[in-house]
């Protein structure tokens, strides 16, 4: 007996099948609103941003300073000792030059997302943000950067209280 093929065909559709009404479908959107609590550590962090300061957390067992801050050290699983003030400067750990938005719309002026290692934190510790006021061709890994803050009266305790990082 000839064995059956393990490869099974499916009905493949394209955009035209939708736009021309060739097939039936249901179009709907989900509406989901949330109010997310910041928690303890990120609450401090956001409070710091509102005051124009970047905070980290220090583990006295591992002698590590991490950012964003957290209440437990994942290396030794002991509580973090204290929150510490870091500098608002750092260096680019890595970056991208991005020509699409989060929902895949094309943009001609690229965004430059980057992981910024914050000065005062242990090496390799940073967070995600963006770079601006810089020629994309000049950006490089290891570049020194500094946070550009919103004016104090406009800050609301959000990661976007830092507008972006620029060359330092």
């Amino acid at each position: 007996m000839q064995p059956k093929s393990p490869y099974i065909e499916v009905v493949s559709l394209n955009e035209e099948d939708f736009s021309s009404g060739q097939i039936l479908f249901r179009h709907d959107r989900l509406i989901a609103h949330y109010a997310w609590d910041t928690g303890i550590a990120i609450g401090y962090f956001l409070g710091g941003l509102k005051a124009g300061v970047i905070l980290g957390a220090y583990c006295s067992t591992c002698r590590k300073t991490v950012t964003p801050p957290r209440i437990v050290c994942e290396w030794c699983f002991r509580p973090m000792q204290r929150f510490v003030e870091l500098s608002d400067t750092g260096k680019v750990n890595t970056f991208s030059i991005c020509y699409i938005t989060w929902d895949v719309k094309r943009i001609s002026e690229p965004e430059i997302p980057a992981v910024i290692e914050i000065d005062g934190a242990s090496p390799g510790h940073g967070f995600l943000h963006k770079l601006a006021e810089v020629d994309p061709n000049e950006v490089h890994i290891g570049m020194k950067v500094q946070a550009v803050w919103k004016p104090p009266e406009e800050r609301c305790g959000s990661i976007t209280d830092i507008l972006y990082f620029r060359k330092f």
Binding site: I42, F95, C98, W102, V115, H129, K130, I141, T160
Partner: peptide
């Protein structure tokens, strides 16, 4: 992360692009 990352409107490709750049550099 809803508090620290989503406000920056990240595309999924960001994390790959960031990792690829770090790896190749």
């Amino acid at each position: 992360d809803h508090t620290l990352e989503r406000p920056l409107k990240p595309n999924l490709l960001w994390i790959f692009a960031l990792e690829m750049n770090r790896y190749m550099t």
